[in-house]
């Protein structure tokens, strides 16, 4: 869904950066992009993808800030410093969020994009990511880290420049996880996140007609009854999930399960069309 939203903006003519949080890239294989890293790779016109890790973000920031390559080399090729970077709490999270918000804060190397779409971590780890600048900003009052932490959180909490989208599939566990994340975002940060539901299966025949079919054929074709039972269960599970998700977001957007679409760009095209035109 993240890639589809990014694709949709790019299709409208905006310059878009799709950020994936590392160390493992999903898009690398999905789009057959070769090895992904901190350098943006063009996917289609106006859309670049990048894989960010804390180390790559910090390196870029340090190099830009210190400007002297020698100091940068000492900084990163020194095992004391490497251990420090690994050990210092919140440095990893701050580096990533610093990079994501750098364009708005006018800090670090320039990024010339109209939209930045972040394919972020799952529930608990995403909350931990957001808590870092808030915690550090509270604790450290002076110096660049304290100041930047407060600026980062200010950007992240500004609805004029940042919105949050939770993506669920229509099943009990993802729905519950979405509910908890939405509540936590509101309680801790005052963030109102919109909800999308992906992989919605279109089951044309009604539950009743499917049940009837199962009953009619159960003697001659017991496997039909078995599949009808399964299909109706999937429908009920999906319907219940959709109802709960609708409670979370009255403007819930539905995205179909594109079972017949295997070409990744075609998939983005279909999903983004729905996202922007529904």
């Amino acid at each position: 869904m993240g890639a589809s939203i990014a694709y949709g903006y790019a299709k409208k003519g905006a310059r878009v950066l799709l950020i994936e949080l590392g160390p493992i890239s999903f898009y690398e294989n999905f789009f057959h992009l070769g090895s992904m890293g901190p350098q943006p790779v063009g996917l289609v016109k106006n859309l670049d993808i990048v894989l960010l890790t804390a180390e790559s973000c910090l390196k870029e920031y340090v190099l830009h800030y210190l400007r002297v390559k020698k100091i940068y080399e000492i900084f990163f090729e020194n095992r004391v410093m490497r251990a420090f970077i690994q050990a210092a709490p919140a440095v990893a999270e701050l580096s990533i969020l610093g990079k994501i918000t750098s364009q708005i804060r006018h800090v670090g190397p320039p990024m010339e994009y109209d939209h930045v779409v972040v394919d972020a971590y799952a529930t608990g780890h995403f909350l931990a990511l957001l808590r870092s600048p808030a915690a550090l900003g509270e604790m450290i009052h002076t110096g660049p880290f304290g100041v930047e932490s407060r600026k980062i959180i200010e950007v992240l909490l500004n609805p004029q420049c940042c919105d949050y989208t939770l993506v669920a599939t229509p099943e009990p566990l993802p729905v519950q996880e979405t509910k908890e994340l939405q509540e936590a975002l509101m309680a801790e940060f005052g963030i109102k996140a919109q909800v999308l539901v992906n992989k919605v299966l279109n089951i044309e025949p009604t539950e009743e007609s499917v049940s009837q079919l199962g009953q009619i054929t159960k003697v001659e074709e017991p496997s039909v009854l078995q599949f009808c039972t399964y299909l109706n269960y999937v429908r009920r599970r999906q319907d219940s999930a959709l109802l709960q998700l609708k409670d979370l977001d009255k403007n819930l957007k539905y995205f179909p399960w594109l079972m017949n679409t295997t070409e990744p760009i075609k998939m983005l095209e279909l999903l983004s069309e729905r996202y922007f035109h529904e």
Binding site: V62, I74, F75, I140, T142
Partner: peptide, 25 residues
Amino acid sequence: GTNVAFKGLEKLTGSEFLEELLNFF
């Protein structure tokens, strides 16, 4: 070399953060 790196680090993070961290370690 580490001294130089620490100075760089102080410039990047600020002395308050660095002091807190050294204190923690």
